[in-house]
């Protein structure tokens, strides 16, 4: 009994309990639905996707997405429905447009900046002039050359 309880506790995740069970006639639609609700943000618990969130609104929006997908609408149409009402904020992957250029290009800019800094640093480092070998070192070198040769 204890093992069973432990097993149930460990295998059931909260995300599993948050979503209701949906049935689709078409497995392709089920996959699309699962992907969509994982990619759309819940507006109440802003760091959770619709799939993860237990909020009332998330449940309503899952219903909307389910009905649209089941009715044969495309992913783009379902996403459009939500962005028309809630804005791009519902998308975890916002579209590339002038207001999001910095968001998408930022990492590249930082990489470029770091690259330029690293290159400048590497160029600035002058090779140190080698000091001539001392008498003793020279002897050791000659000895080593003989033994290895």
């Amino acid at each position: 009994m204890k093992t069973l309880i432990l097993l149930l506790t460990l295998t059931g995740s909260s995300a599993l309990f948050a979503t209701e069970i949906r049935s689709f006639a078409d497995p392709d639609k089920a996959a699309r639905y699962d992907r969509l609700i994982g990619e759309l943000r819940c507006l109440v618990c802003q760091n959770q996707s619709l799939a993860d969130s237990d909020a009332d609104l998330a449940q309503d929006l899952r219903n909307e997405v389910y009905e649209m997908i089941a009715a044969g609408q495309s992913d783009a149409e379902a996403i459009r429905f939500l962005t028309d009402r809630y804005g791009d904020f519902v998308l975890y992957r916002p579209p590339i447009k002038p207001t999001t250029f910095l968001l998408w290009g930022g990492p590249l800019l930082i990489l470029l900046f770091g690259g330029v800094m690293a290159w400048r640093y590497a160029r600035q480092r002058k090779p140190q002039p080698l000091s001539p070998l001392s008498e003793a070192d020279q002897d050791t070198l000659e000895r080593l050359k003989k033994t290895s040769g």
Binding site: L43, V44, D56, D60, R85, G87
Partner: peptide
């Protein structure tokens, strides 16, 4: 009652 108009208005809080 079902919050449909709320969704159309983009109500989230």
């Amino acid at each position: 009652q079902d919050g449909r108009v709320g969704i159309d208005l983009g109500v989230y809080g």
